[in-house]
Amino acid sequence: MAAGNIVQGALFTVMVVRAAMLREPAFENELTQQIGRSPRFFQNAPVVLDLRGVENLTEAGEFETIKEKLRALTLTLVGVQNAQPAQLEGATAAGLASFAPTTGGGQSRAGAAPPAAAKTRLVTAPVRSGTQIYARGSDLVVTASVSPGAELVADGNIHVYGVLRGRALAGAGGDGAARIFCTRLEAELVSIAGRYLVSEQLPANAQGAPVQIALVDDQLTITRN
């Protein structure tokens, strides 16, 4: 195996918690509520502690305490950000990694994931029968045709710059605002956030036409472009 295969780069979305907020009494309560709303999303989610504007907090023991506190909320503290040299020493001793400062990190609301722009999944070759493509947490753009028996799934929007003959399921994670766009609709099935229409339910004037499909009042609505 080539040495290049041993270490690989990857990009992750990680929650950032501002250390200054930790001291506010309402914070813990608010965070608990937020986690309660989508417990699976936060289950063992990695968290980075932003030390901007916090002067003390240099002891390894203090970091351990925060780690335990977050642990109780099902979050895993993995590192720190914007640390002073002395703070970094304490954090390292507590087994935490140092993350590069993010731009605009100061504005990010405590407890919420920073609004990272998920990269759109781009497919340029024809999507053949039997192929399934899932754009996790992002949009899906296909610049070729999608064959019958192929399946496109995206948590965001789906764009097909070609003939859509297979299935397209947008908003697969439940996002009702997701849409499907295609330059020619001949789909076997289209679905947004679980609402679906099969081929024979597609209106005749939409068949073979350039369309966009959206969820309006919980109804799949097809508009000719």
């Binding site: 070759a125 053949r128 029968s129 192929a150």
Partner: peptide
């Protein structure tokens, strides 16, 4: 035609 499409996909993967 559909089966051919499938096998073209398999060749590509």
């Amino acid at each position: 035609v559909r089966d051919s499409d499938r096998i073209i996909g398999i060749l590509a993967s």
